[in-house]
């Protein structure tokens, strides 16, 4: 640490989607329990680089600041992290902040993760209820099923699993672990299971589950500890059964 009273932050910036990236460095006064969001707010209040140059505040996405909205994911010291839970005292300095590399940059650290929401549409990630009018209670469910499904339902669509996946890149539009795990969640639900086949079929389209190459980075990077590799394995089984055995036994 250069100075116990300072936090040095290097930010990879880009003025627009087509802009050329450049780096800026900031020196901020250290306080206890600082996180990366607090650093970015400090910069917004006094946007002056370490060299004394006036600059613009840094664009970044954030909302809940408690790791449930999925907004503030970025690369922190080269790793996919949520900025709100990245505590300064636990990071090596200078702290390097970069936008996710697998999504188009909007500006600075803000990226466009619409791909994930489009993918959720592709795999029909919902329970197709008849309507919101009163149709009585939902299906009963074993506590065991709920306990298995609940962790999957906590996915915040932050995109970390796509960011760290070697199979997601410019040459390959892999749908990613988060979406596959959502399919597992919906196929697990008694009503959702009635429509399992169409979700599985969507998962077998180009860029689908077959593009997973089992590097298992996703499960390590997931900030919500979702058992993504289990989900992928489970969906793999459902998929090949449908693709290879489905036409035999219906």
């Amino acid at each position: 640490m250069p100075d116990a009273k300072e936090v040095i932050v290097r930010v990879k910036r880009q003025v627009s989607p087509k802009g050329t990236p450049y780096w800026e460095e900031f020196a901020l006064p250290w306080r206890p329990a600082m996180n990366v969001i607090i650093c970015l707010r400090d910069i917004a209040e006094n946007p002056v680089t370490r060299e004394g140059q006036r600059t613009t505040p840094i664009s970044y996405d954030s909302n809940c600041l408690e790791e449930v909205c999925g907004s503030c994911a970025m690369l922190i010291n080269g790793k996919a992290r949520m900025a709100c839970s990245a505590l300064v005292d636990k990071l090596d300095q200078p702290i390097r902040l970069e936008p996710f590399s697998k999504f188009p940059v909007v500006r600075d650290l803000a990226v466009d993760r619409q791909f994930m929401f489009e993918s959720l549409k592709r795999v029909k990630s919902w329970i197709p209820i008849d309507g919101t009018y009163d149709l009585g209670e939902g299906p009963r469910m074993a506590p065991e099923t709920q306990e298995k499904a609940y962790p999957l339902s906590r996915c915040i669509s932050c995109g970390s699993c796509l960011e760290v996946c070697p199979q997601v890149n410019d040459n390959n539009k892999f749908i990613g672990a988060a979406i596959i795990s959502q399919v597992r969640l919906f196929n697990m639900h008694p009503t959702g299971a009635m429509h399992a086949k169409e979700r599985i079929a969507a998962l077998m389209e180009p860029g689908g589950i077959q593009d997973c190459a089992n590097a298992q980075n996703c499960v390590k990077a997931c900030p919500k500890d979702i058992p993504l590799t289990e989900s992928i394995a489970e969906m793999n089984r459902q998929a090949w059964k449908q693709a290879l055995v489905g036409w035999l036994v219906g």
Binding site: W126, I127, D134, R140, A142, Q146, A149
Partner: peptide, 19 residues
Amino acid sequence: GIIDLLDRMGVMFNRTPEG
């Protein structure tokens, strides 16, 4: 009725042993 609706939408509410 709202709880029932949410249940039907697939919210993973905690369950009793009876489901």
